[in-house]
Amino acid sequence: MIDIESITKIYTPKNPPAVDSLELSMKDGEILGLVGLNGAGKTTTIRMTSGIILPTSGRIMVDGYDIVLDKVKAAANVGWIPELPNFEPNATPLQLMNYFAGFYNLKGKEAEERIMSLLEQVGLKDHLHKKLRSYSQGMKKRFSIAESIIGDPQNVMFDETLNGLDPEGVLFVRNLMMNLKKRGKAILLSSHILSEIQDVADRVAIIDHGKLIKTIKRSEMKTLGKTVVHVTVENFNADCKKILAKYGDVETSGNESMIRDLKIPEKDIPSIPDELVRSGYRIIRFDPVGESLEEYFFSLIGGLK
């Protein structure tokens, strides 16, 4: 469990804070999604939480230990998979894993077994003796996943980890997160792929300009913001679009339409399919839902729609 208590990070006094009085918590057995535009402060927050950089003010408690004042105990419970992992280029994965294992007092057979198991899990078993400089970015990311959890930390942070991974890698990371969650670990996933976050996160924290804008629970994601209606009509034509337009703004793609900014109360939504049927249209799909996370995110931060 990680509690971020009103942290602020100012890189240079000339510029606004990268992170501004941010309050956030990562709970055990939960996946927390962290979303925000570039420069919103996601990576700065993660780097402070990992002990890589120091907060200007505020504190970060990792399972009860301050990451600044009690770095050794706190960092033992944090795993961080950075967006662009960087390692000693002339080392082999085995050498580095042995080195890193030493920080967690993993020795001998125990260390060896753990290292081999992790490298096998991330699919690097056949590349153990290659120097890391010959690894592709995707392989480095896989290695980064392995080395970040070598100490079996209670809290794991994935910073844009899905970027640069092949579909197999994406699936692996998703399964890994679910597996860690099942084991009661606290997971943080920062990603630009909001649909991915929407699929796996129990909560999503939206940050902008270093501030927390909103935290959304999984139960709220189905009904985010305004309701939109997805309609698919078999014999769709211009007249059909005119009918739909009476109920709100219509976006059409083939015979699929989406009505936004409804002009009628939600309780009257069933009148839409009634009118379509009456007009002789055959409805394949009629689905009133909340906005997607992406749509909601942009509406919230006032960005592009």
Partner: peptide
């Protein structure tokens, strides 16, 4: 070189003080 290239971060995130 390790510090400015970010390689040192892969070590600093461990249970070790600066």
């Amino acid at each position: 070189k390790d510090r400015t290239s970010g390689v040192l971060e892969s070590v600093l995130k461990r249970p070790v003080t600066r």
